[in-house]
Design a protein around this nucleic acid. Structure first.
Length: 864
RNA sequence: GCCCGGGUGGCGGAAUGGUAGACGCAGCGGACUUAAAAUCCGCUGGCCGCAAGGCCGUGCCGGUUCGAGUCCGGCCCUGGGCACCA
């Protein structure tokens, strides 16, 4: 007998226990079955799960479980992105080593994931801070170093003064550190780079083949790579000690004959050299360096510059052109210098007008006015004028001809330029993967031999906030040089944590292999069939992972060209925000749970009060759940209150996966209520369900039974289509429709309907609410294990009806409904439609022009 | 400025060019209860109407079509990405 009450905690614990006991989610390579690798982005072990995690992993779990029921050999692994700054910060606060903090968080969050019932193969679990994992970061870094893909370069780097570390360009947002928000400073520092630009073309071109990726993610990557075709042009310097040529990049080489000056960036070596002797220039450089780097500042910043007192030769005419330093030239794009063609470039135009530099029109435009810019001046569809032998040529011909002449003189050539920079991976941080190098006074920089890997990070050090503690750790620092045996020092820089997450999906396939980074099992599982994660990783992580996979391919480690076949970027989880204004402009946020809300007739929030004392509270609208705004909802308390199934169900029902999701307390209660109804239905109809399992001849069933069955199969058909396009909210709707279509208290003659319908319902729900589905499935005698139950498909015969209702329109407006036999021919349908009284009213006295019949749907009578 | 999304009831959201608002939440009414909770039943886009039914309605303006939330053109608002990119 079934228990009367739906008790999720009891059910979920028991079902999860059974899964663990029989290793239900252990994945084995099996050539006989089609494989499916379903992967969610691994979490950072910050302490506890948040709702974004729950959403992410529920989406992945739903896909995983459904594919398994459809007969696929499915792998869903899990791991921890375990290196990074928060562990260091927590260590400083609590005086606990980052390792301890991290491993404790992992242990806690692992239990949370298990309590949510995800079908994860825990045998493959990894944490990127484990030596067994990062050993291969180091090993592969050395391979890349041998190939020149990893190389050392001193460069200007972004220095975050708060975190005391170097940031990648990608980690600088509006001139501020992406974590700290502190204004970034420039520093020179030797560091290691990965030559991702070598792969820029392939990374761009193979985007096209990624049909399973959202278009916008591909666009963002393409923009980031930023390929532009043009030419490199050299402007010889007339007389200058040292530098002999200014290199520029341009996409408009055809307009070279219109160049009237050359401009370099404030950070350009030439400008810096002049600044040594010219305090005016030095002052200008200093000012433009601190001139705001924020978006708004750049957009409104005036174009400013000053002459350097140098002259460069035009590469074709030899004409002497003044060299300027200008704040609108960017050091980190192209060559940090431009040839200025004021007549045909809007920025040069403004600059030339401001400083009275010459403007020379070289592209045909009628009524050219050198005081007022018009967009047609930079139109590539026009032909060259005032350009000597190049006159009359178009953009492409002109570019080709000029590039050919430049090449002959050794002063330029066609070239492709990328916005993408090489990836600087050195970090002056402790809690990261050590870069496996040794500095020897005699031998220089020496690689740690493979058989001495991994270079282990001491797990007992506690950073104190004054830089990297490895620099003070003799045990780590002092080593013998692998080449000469003399005293030497270890490199103390660690790798960017994006390195760790650039290949973890490959390690899952071979996580128990101590002797190799990956083995043949990688080629069984790769590529990942479905990857799920936040849109915030659309550029960096996904680009790095694609790059890393291609390098591994080129070093013969894997066959895959691309790591992720299908990508789903889930939307954020939002909640209401409430706050109070304290004195001195301070804002105090309040958790929504502590606030009582007053709504107007339209349901809009008009007032809010703190529950404890009734003090008024301001409503801040809806925003992403965040620690600072205190509007997060703890998944743990939801699971305790409503169960994992209800939590998962609400997450899937509240919005389609890619859209933002608004948290709703009443919404999760609705999900909970639905599961209670499902349970109650099983209790009330147990006998029918057990009795109805025999095969049944539906062709002899009553109209009522067949109508109910039709509803169920229509909902099933819709659910399957929606599962296929990953619109899980309407899958849940379909499940609700099925429950609504079933008789609440079934009579004996309804047994077959109830048994079939409820069996369909349980299997539709199994991926979303696996515990309750499993319990009811086995309890009601459908089978032992719903995990491997056959996925339900609708019965086409069930959709057939003897009588169908057609909508009748007159001139496209709904005027009536008529029931006709399914077999009715066109004439019969038309006459039935015309005989409807209301339709008659609108047709009377008018001429019927034509009648459109859409089979099974509607009739539209066109009158005039 | 350029490139992507998105604008549908009180709310979350449904609708292969064919009944706009499925499913749920909230609200209202009723049943059960001493009462409350839970549960169950009904109503619920706006306006007019006793009703039958009618008119209006998917950001705005126009177009294509027998028929447009859906397709096309032009706007407005909004979210995101990129950006003095040469």
């Amino acid at each position: 007998m079934m228990k009367d009450q739906y008790r999720p905690r009891e059910i979920e614990a028991a079902v999860q226990g059974a899964w663990t006991a029989n290793g239900a989610f252990t994945a084995r390579e099996d050539a006989a079955r089609p494989k499916y690798y379903c992967l969610s982005m691994l979490p950072y072990p910050s302490g506890k799960l948040h709702m974004g995690h729950v959403r992410n992993y529920t989406i992945g779990d739903v896909i995983t479980r459904r594919m398994r029921m459809r007969g696929y050999n499915v792998l869903q692994p899990m791991g921890w992105d375990a290196f990074g700054l928060p562990a260091e910060n927590a260590a400083m606060q609590n005086g606990v080593p980052p390792a301890k903090w991290t491993y404790e968080n992992i242990a806690y969050m692992r239990e949370q994931l298990k309590a949510l019932g995800f079908a994860i193969d825990w045998e493959r679990e990894l944490a990127t801070c484990q030596p067994a994992y990062y050993k291969w970061n180091q090993w592969f870094f050395l391979r890349m170093r041998e190939k020149g893909i990893a190389y050392k370069k001193t460069g200007v780097v972004n220095w975050d003064p708060v975190d005391q570390t170097v940031l990648a360009n990608e980690q600088v947002i509006d001139g501020r550190g992406w974590r700290t928000g502190a204004e970034v400073e420039k520093r020179e520092m030797p560091m290691y780079y990965l030559n991702i630009t070598r792969y820029a073309d392939e990374l761009l071109d193979s985007l096209e083949g990624l049909d399973g990726w959202p278009e916008r993610v591909k666009t963002m990557q393409a923009n980031w790579i930023g390929k532009s075709e043009g030419a490199e042009i050299h402007f010889p310097l007339a007389d200058n000690d040292g530098e002999d040529v200014i290199k520029v990049f341009t996409t408009r080489a055809d307009t070279l004959m219109g160049a009237t000056y050359v401009a370099v960036a404030p950070e350009h070596p030439l400008a810096l050299k002049v600044a040594e002797k010219n305090s005016e220039v030095a002052k200008f450089i200093e000012e433009s360096r601190k001139g705001g780097t924020t978006e708004a500042a750049i957009a409104t910043q005036e174009k400013r510059g000053m002459p350097l007192g140098l002259e460069a030769e035009h590469p074709l005419t030899g004409e002497k052109l003044p060299v300027w330093v200008a704040n609108y030239v960017l050091m980190n794009y192209g060559e940090g210098a431009v040839m200025a063609v004021p007549a045909h470039d809007e920025r040069d135009f403004a600059f030339a007008n401001k400083y009275g530099l010459p403007i020379r029109q070289v592209v045909a435009c009628e009524d050219y006015d050198d005081k007022e810019w018009r967009d047609e001046y930079s139109d590539k569809q026009r032909t060259l004028v005032n350009s000597g032998k190049y006159d009359g040529l178009g953009f492409e011909q002109g570019t080709d001809a000029i590039a050919a002449d430049l090449e002959q003189k050794g002063l330029g050539k066609k070239r492709v330029n990328f916005r993408l920079r090489d990836w600087g991976i050195s970090r002056q941080r402790f809690w990261g993967c050590p870069i496996p190098l040794i500095h020897c006074g005699k031998c220089g920089e020496v690689a740690v031999p493979d058989n001495e890997l991994p270079v282990k990070l001491p797990e007992d050090l506690v950073p104190d906030g004054s830089g990297n503690p490895l620099n003070k750790c003799a045990e780590f620092l002092d080593v013998k040089c692998p080449q000469c045996g003399g005293a030497a020092k270890r490199e103390t820089d660690t790798m960017d944590t994006f390195v760790d997450s650039s290949w973890y999906f490959l390690r899952y396939t071979s996580s128990d292999n101590d002797g190799a980074m990956v083995d043949a099992r990688a080629d069984y599982w790769m590529p990942v069939d479905q990857y799920i994660g936040g849109i915030e990783h659309a550029i960096l992580h996904l680009l790095y992972a694609r790059f890393w996979t291609k390098v591994m391919r080129d070093l013969g480690l894997v066959q895959a060209d691309e790591p992720f076949r299908n990508l789903l970027t889930q939307g954020m989880v939002l909640n209401h925000i409430f706050f109070r204004k304290e004195g001195a402009g301070r804002i105090e946020y309040l958790p929504p749970a502590d606030v009582d809300v007053e709504r107007n007739d339209k349901g809009e929030i008009v007032a809010a009060k703190r529950r404890s004392d009734g003090a008024p509270v301001e409503y801040g609208g809806i925003g992403t759940m965040s620690k600072s705004k205190l509007n997060g909802v703890d998944p743990q308390s939801m699971v305790e209150q409503y169960g994992a199934d209800a939590t998962r169900l609400f997450m899937m029902f509240a919005a389609p996966p890619e859209q933002t999701l608004e948290w709703s307390d009443t919404g999760i209660e609705g999900a909970w209520r639905f599961l209670k109804k499902v349970w109650q239905f099983a209790v009330d109809n147990e006998a029918s369900i057990r009795a109805g399992g025999e095969s049944f001849d539906w062709s002899r069933a009553s109209d009522g039974l067949r109508a109910a069955r039709r509803e169920i199969h229509e909902a099933l058909k819709q659910a399957n289509a929606d599962y296929e396009r990953k619109q899980f909210n309407t899958v849940v709707s379909a499940a609700m429709k099925i429950l609504n279509a079933l008789p609440k208290q079934s009579a004996p003659e309804q047994a077959a309907l109830v048994a079939e319908g409820f069996g369909i319902l349980l299997r539709l729900l199994a991926p979303i609410t696996p515990h309750v589905a499993q319990r009811l499935w086995s309890e009601l005698g459908f089978g032992d294990d719903i995990l491997d139950a056959a996925w339900p498909e609708h019965d086409e015969d069930a959709l057939v009806s003897n009588v169908i209702e057609l909508v009748v329109q007159v001139n496209g407006k709904l005027r009536g409904r008529v029931a006709v036999p399914a077999a009715a021919d066109r004439a019969a349908i038309e006459s039935a439609a015309m005989s409807d009284a209301n339709v008659q009213r609108f047709v009377e006295g008018k001429t019927v022009r034509k009648v459109i019949v859409v089979p099974g749907k509607l009739v539209n009578v066109v009158v005039a």
